[in-house]
């Protein structure tokens, strides 16, 4: 998952996979959203990943473990400020795209998630106000065993209403011809 560019020998004489107008967007903030954490929302999410940890559902258990109230499951954080997409605005591949900057790579229609890396710094509770800011960290053309591809990496920060950094994340997407 190295993000170091590895231009391939044979890419010099062929059309670059990354349009110049996409390369120019590296560093751009593509999403900046703020939302209130709702307990019922994160409890529904916990149930959807079969997580019935009483810490998330029972305030007494949470207090007995040193929390002021039920804490939010850490992995729910990326859903807190997710946009509410209209179904008729989804892209042809079904993705919403808006939170990632609607990047377009016409020569690389096949997309797949690369990976995600989350660092958690503080607990989050119902009523907290989370601001999610995502920027394009890098867009590089690489060459692997199955040919050329584009690797896009985003960096996301999450801060709370006290401007404390709650978590940081990187995520990546691979687009292939």
């Amino acid at each position: 998952m190295s993000s170091l560019p590895e231009p391939s020998e044979d890419s010099r004489d062929v059309e670059p996979l990354i349009p110049a107008e996409m390369a120019a967007r590296i560093g751009e903030v593509v999403a900046s959203r703020t939302a209130v954490v709702e307990v019922k929302e994160f409890q529904r999410w916990a149930a959807s990943v079969k997580d019935r940890n009483p810490l998330y559902f029972d305030a007494e258990v949470a207090r007995a473990n040193g929390h002021p109230d039920v804490p939010m499951p850490p992995m729910f954080l990326q859903q807190v400020a997710l946009g509410v997409a209209d179904l008729d605005q989804l892209r042809p591949d079904g993705t919403a795209g808006t939170g990632n900057g609607n990047l377009s790579f016409p020569l690389c229609p096949r997309r797949m998630a690369g990976g995600e890396n989350h660092t958690f710094l503080l607990s989050v509770y119902g009523g907290d106000v989370i601001t999610q800011e995502r920027r394009i960290d890098s867009i590089v053309e690489k060459s692997g065993r199955s040919g050329r591809f584009v690797l896009v990496t985003w960096k996301t920060t999450y801060t709370n209403q006290r401007d404390e950094l709650v978590a940081e994340s990187t995520s990546s997407m691979i687009a292939r011809p």
């Binding site: 998952m1 997580d51 940890n53 850490p74 990976g115 995600e116 958690f120």
Partner: peptide, 15 residues
């Protein structure tokens, strides 16, 4: 998190 505690996770890297 059932194993090691929800409030104890510091990093989670997914492939």
């Amino acid at each position: 998190t059932d194993w090691l505690g929800a409030e104890n996770v510091r990093n989670f890297r997914i492939r």
